[in-house]
Design a binder for these strands. Structure first.
Length: 890
DNA sequence: GCGGACTGCTTACCT
DNA sequence: ACAGGTAAGCAGTCCGCG
């Protein structure tokens, strides 16, 4: 273990308990309970492993909260960083499932669907704060003996509050638990430990955040431990299986589990490198050692699997890539088929749609699900991967890839199989360990912020994270979680979107000129939407409040008043979004850029600010999503309207003080040759006018604008090129266009000043002419010519139109039997003839429709040509002059 | 029946 | 099941022409 990690663990173990006792007052004595017994099977393998309660006074990491149907209780999974084991702590606070309603108790007692239900427990009266009025209200609490009863009863009343929350999450809210944080156990109760701010730290924090409001200060102090408490590493193992398949192109179905598991690889964070492999007659045998790998051979599948169960049981966390859909259910159903299902430490729950898999001795994290998450992809990893298989994700963020096979795993020799299998497990583990465990730390921080257990966190989308975070905050503040109807009743939409079918008007994009411009400075508003939410106090309960004495107008770029915001109290979303934004911008972004600090500490700050970014950037969007339980269209509409107001006002001011604005999109302005004084002037004006940070984001040596919106090339002083939106950048563009565009890019990047433009223009024209000529001479092969388009749904779901890639996929399926499914990338070329396309696998070079490719060359390069004032005809007419013997007809 | 104008669908990008 | 805005290319439809 490295020194840095050791320190972290020590810090973790010596963490100070937070004074307040977060668990309920009704705690009873610790309850002894075990989930499984240790048993030895016929082969002498230790297969059923005991799950014991945690010890008193020790420090544990809370990983997960779940519900045990047999015990009828919620339980916590607690990780012990010293033993590397997970312990189970059952609820001993007599917490029970419930929901709320405004129907009075005497009326409830007459509803037989509720009181006659076998799981009905009792009725109570509770006091909550109505988020809209801020006043206390009395509600009826219906308590049940099991969570399913809530589902049966909630429709028996006109309005049921908080009745759609999963029980174990309700448990987390009521006990104020924070998954991902350390806890000690005393008298069978959890007490939060972790880094609480000292007096000096607290004062420094409030000063840095510039907070004066009492509620905001208290919330900031409450949130401090979430970001500052060290994150311990957790012992874990990546698992990957290989299954025998008789034919290519057929993925085995886990439910049937009809083919044998021929190899299982395990890569442990403790250094274990193990492959369990089946001896077979059909492929070349192999015995011996392999390059640091611990290989074990088995004569039959049953003993291979039993050994796997034994080995995996030593780990509290199992990692897979797509294990939810394949590896874990396959292992489970195969074990059942072989008569050893009872030994498998996994549970496969058949839920609507997707299978959910559980690892009984800890956690199973399916990294595919986590990396597929849109918010993780875009905000945490800045779209470094755009395909979602292990190879693409690992290459995108690790730079490591799978071992390439010419055939399928069933046919390779054992040595190749072992190496191939192990590599998959190794890179799966690597995805959580690279860069000082960045991904593991990110997951823990996301769990702390969202208050979701790790298993749920890694399987749901960002809207669920945000929903859970807000529910938790409501409960902690005694606020009633409002129904969707109550929110929708208030703010009505006042604008219409530019795009058909969208709910409300969005951002402004300034039309750019076509041309090459030297010395361009890009200014942007730091976290515009979150800052607007904070500064204008935007929240579902403050926008268009029914009664309010202190209101502020929400205006758009034309000065029209769209909504009114109540400024009497801080709105909850304004508070939380503002807090995350301020923590990120004023503290962690700065800390992550410090030069004189410990690199591992610096990396942690980087993860912290990234985790915050995920929530900050998605918060605005969820309130504009009609499926979100706190859907508040007036909130979303107010945010974009104010955003337009801000950028339009700034644009106008910039013009007044003589700045030349070339372009802008949503929250940015591109300025041509801005003098220092005016630049500082506009920044100051924005700060004074809106209390927003308007910062220099980038300084480009030159920017090439195609004349299209969201479409340009920016070159930094050091020659680094950023391409935005251009065709050559798109994933579906054929390779020959991408590579030839690179040469053009190099010419553009080498320009130093206006004086170089004419020479560059000539070179660019020449280059494009050569590409055009080579294409006409069929100088490219099929792979280079292939368009690569993702099938976003299964073929039979293309009912309205049949796009080209779907046609190609259909041909592939019909003539080769190769299975094509949603998310597959289809490679096809454009050909003459019926469909106009053929999958590369079936096409021949001579069928290629050259005219179609000329079109592709034209549209790709026209985006650059336009900036130089050239047209496509300028290129093709040169050809007709140059190529004397083969004049073109155009 | 043909072809241009148009709308709609699909994919992939930007903020 | 976070949002709206922009672009490209094709599929499919409508409509006038003759």
């Amino acid at each position: 273990m490295s020194k840095a990690k050791q320190q972290t663990l020590d810090e973790f173990l010596s963490a100070t308990p937070v004074k307040k006792d977060v668990q309920s007052k009704h705690a009873e004595s610790a309850q002894q309970s075990t989930i499984r017994k240790t048993e030895i099977n016929q082969e002498g393998r230790k297969l059923k492993v005991e799950m014991t309660p945690p010890e008193e006074g020790r420090n544990y990491l809370l990983l997960q909260v779940d519900y045990d149907g047999k015990e009828g209780k919620a339980f916590c999974k607690l990780y012990d960083p010293i033993s590397g084991k997970v312990h189970i702590l059952y609820d001993n606070t007599k917490h029970m499932p419930y929901f709320l309603t405004d129907v009075p108790t005497d009326k409830i007692s007459k509803i037989s669907k509720i009181v006659k239900d076998s799981s009905f427990d009792k009725i109570e009266i509770v006091e909550k704060i109505d988020p809209f009025s801020g006043k206390k209200v009395k509600l009826t609490k219906i308590v049940t003996k099991d969570p399913l009863a809530v589902r049966r009863m909630r429709d028996a009343v006109p309005i049921a509050y908080e009745a759609h929350i999963k029980y174990f999450n309700n448990y987390i809210y009521d006990l104020g638990l924070i998954p991902g944080m350390p806890y000690t156990v005393s008298d069978g109760r959890l007490t939060l430990t972790g880094k609480i701010p000292s007096k000096e730290e607290g004062e420094a924090l409030i000063k840095n955040l510039e907070y004066v409001d009492e509620v905001a200060i208290r919330t900031a102090i409450d949130w401090f431990p979430i970001f500052e408490t060290p994150i311990p590493t957790v012992k874990r193992v990546a698992v990957d299986i290989e299954v025998y398949t008789p034919t290519k192109g057929r993925v085995p179905n886990p439910k049937d589990a009809e083919f044998p598991i021929i190899s299982i690889a395990l890569a442990g964070s403790d250094g274990m490198k193990k492959v369990l492999v089946l001896r077979r007659n059909d492929v070349g045998g192999f015995e011996g050692t392999l390059d640091g790998l611990d290989v074990e051979f088995f004569n039959n599948e049953r003993s291979l699997m039993n050994r796997f169960f034994e080995v995996v049981s030593n780990y509290p966390v199992v990692l897979t890539f797509n294990g939810d859909d394949f590896d874990i259910p396959y292992i489970y159903y195969r074990a059942v088929k072989l008569g050893i299902g009872d030994w498998a430490p996994f549970t496969v729950i058949k839920q609507e749609g997707k299978p959910a898999t559980k690892y009984n001795l800890g956690l199973h994290i399916d990294l595919f699900r986590f990396f597929f998450n849109k918010a993780v992809r875009n905000y945490a990893f800045e779209a470094k991967y755009s395909e979602y298989n292990l190879d693409a994700v690992a290459s995108g963020i690790l730079g490591a890839s799978k071992i390439k096979l010419d055939t399928i795993v069933s046919f390779v020799d054992l040595k190749t199989l072992i190496l191939y299998n192990y590599r998959d497990a190794e890179i799966t583990l690597g995805l959580t360990t690279f860069n000082d465990e960045l991904v593991w730390k990110l997951m823990i921080l996301l769990a702390r912020i969202s208050k979701l257990g790790l298993e749920e966190l890694t399987r749901v989308e960002v809207s669920t994270w945000i929903k859970n975070l807000y529910y938790w905050e409501h409960r902690q503040r005694g606020l009633l979680i409002p129904s969707k109807e109550e929110i929708a009743r208030r703010g009505k939409i006042r604008t219409s979107a530019v795009i058909k079918g969208k709910g409300y008007k969005g951002a402004i994009v300034i039309d750019p000129p076509a041309g090459v411009f030297f010395n361009v400075v890009v200014l942007d508003f730091a976290s515009l939407y979150p800052s607007v939410i904070k500064n204008w106090n935007i929240s579902y309960e403050t926008v268009d409040a029914e009664t309010c004495s202190k209101e502020r107008d929400v205006i758009d770029e034309s000065g029209q008043v769209l909504h009114k915001v109540c400024m009497e109290r801080i709105g909850l979303t304004a508070l939380i979004t503002g807090l995350l934004r301020d923590f990120r911008v004023r503290i962690y972004k700065k800390k992550s850029k410090q030069k004189d600090i410990d690199p591992s500490q610096k990396a942690l700050y980087e993860v912290v600010q990234r985790a915050m970014k995920v929530f900050i950037n998605a918060t605005y969007g969820v309130f504009g999503d009609d499926k979100f339980p706190l859907y508040a269209p007036a909130v979303a509409e107010s945010v974009t309207a104010l955003g337009r107001f801000v950028i339009t006002s700034t644009l106008k001011k910039a013009g007044e003080i003589g700045l030349r604005v070339l372009y802008g999109d949503t929250d940015s302005l591109f300025l041509h040759n801005p003098p220092k004084k005016e630049l500082e002037g506009i920044v100051e004006w924005v700060k004074k006018q809106f209390n927003l940070d308007f910062e220099v984001d980038k300084t480009y040596k030159l920017v090439l604008f195609s004349g299209l919106k969201k479409n340009y090339m920016g070159v930094s002083q050091d020659g680094k090129v950023e391409i935005k939106g251009m065709l050559a950048k798109k994933r579906n563009t054929p390779e020959f266009l991408k590579t030839s565009f690179n040469d053009v890019k190099t010419i553009i990047a080498s320009m130093q000043s206006e004086a170089d433009v004419n020479a560059a223009k000539e070179k660019v024209a020449q280059e494009i002419k050569e590409i055009y000529t080579r294409l006409k001479e069929k100088g490219y092969n099929l792979d280079q010519l292939a368009f690569k388009v993702m099938l976003s749904k299964s073929i039979d779901q293309y009912t309205k139109t049949m796009p080209q890639h779907a046609k190609a996929a259909l041909q592939l399926k019909n003539s080769t039997g190769i299975n094509v499914t949603s998310r597959d990338i289809i490679l096809f070329v454009k050909v003459k003839g019926k469909d106009g396309v053929k999958p590369v696998q079936l096409a021949k070079l001579k069928e290629v429709d050259v005219e179609k490719y000329v079109e592709a060359v034209r549209s790709t390069f026209e985006q650059v040509l336009k900036a130089f004032g050239l047209t496509w005809d300028d290129i093709t007419s040169r050809i007709s002059i140059d190529s004397f013997f083969t004049p073109q007809t155009r």
